[in-house]
Amino acid sequence: MKPTPILKVQNLKVHYPVRSGFINFKPQSFLKAVDGVSFDLFPGEVLGLVGESGCGKSSLGKSLLRLQEPTAGQIELSGQDFLALKGEALRSRRPEIQMIFQDPYASLDPRMTIEATLREPLEAHGLWKSTQSQKTLNKILDRVGISSVALSKYPHEFSGGQRQRIAIARALILNPKIIVADEPVSSLDVSVQAQVLNLLKEIQKEFNLSMVFISHNLAVVKYIADRIAVMYLGKIVEITSKTELYSRPQHPYTQALISAVPIADPKVEKARKRIQLQGELPSPINPPKGCAFHTRCPIVKESCKAEAPKLKDFEKPSWQVSCFEVR
């Protein structure tokens, strides 16, 4: 039997209005950052979300927490319609899904001590109980590898890697079921990046968390994710298990993306054949008609310019590709 998803996203859309005039406030057009995305997230699973800048992966991440209200679509959190919730009902569900942001220099308040930063989520949800919570605080800080001496310090006293650990602690403090991590290691140096990645993986296993891991770095995603969704101009073009995606990518964009990632081994690099994509990401305000990828696709056919392909099963229901040429 298939497990029930903890998060079910259906046909989600995030459109931003583009206003050009000062007086004419009516939106002239819409930037379709996320344009009809559907996926399931299962308990204890890490779903990687990859794509180039501007493909809508961050907008999607934020809309999962309703930090950015989706324009259309459905999100079910543990079987309940998350988008229909309002007021107190919404607030009481928010602890279940937490976020880690890319830049720990911006996501921690410079004027709050680490203790205040970690206490705030508990207090906001009325969960602060002085002695017991203080213990939780120390325990979580210890778990992310920060000494409890840090509680009275301010963010500027920590390095980037340590700050990201604190941000992880803040996301964990409400005991969430789901964590959305938006490029959590992109701003860190290689040696520190590995530390934080290992920590995230350990914590995910230990607390049996479900995670949406957003990144442009395919090597990092390969390390941490179980399943991976590849996005291009607001849509998922391929979604499957990590093993299949890296060994037999089907969508021409996935193939090009994987072949473009440099590998830290000169022998491998010299022997590799790259699929060179021409041009760059088209504007999401006026995406190309038909398949959004047709302007750069190496195997484009006339029909691709007229009609947009839909996600279809490839070999099995868990592997979906949106391309006419993949059968």
Partner: peptide
């Protein structure tokens, strides 16, 4: 050597990335 080992690669599957402890 440590830097090379701690770089995640797309052509290799790893259970755990060997890290360099501490900071710069």
């Amino acid at each position: 050597r440590a830097l090379l080992k701690s770089t995640p690669r797309i052509d290799i599957s790893q259970e755990k990335i060997p890290v360099i402890g501490g900071t710069i």
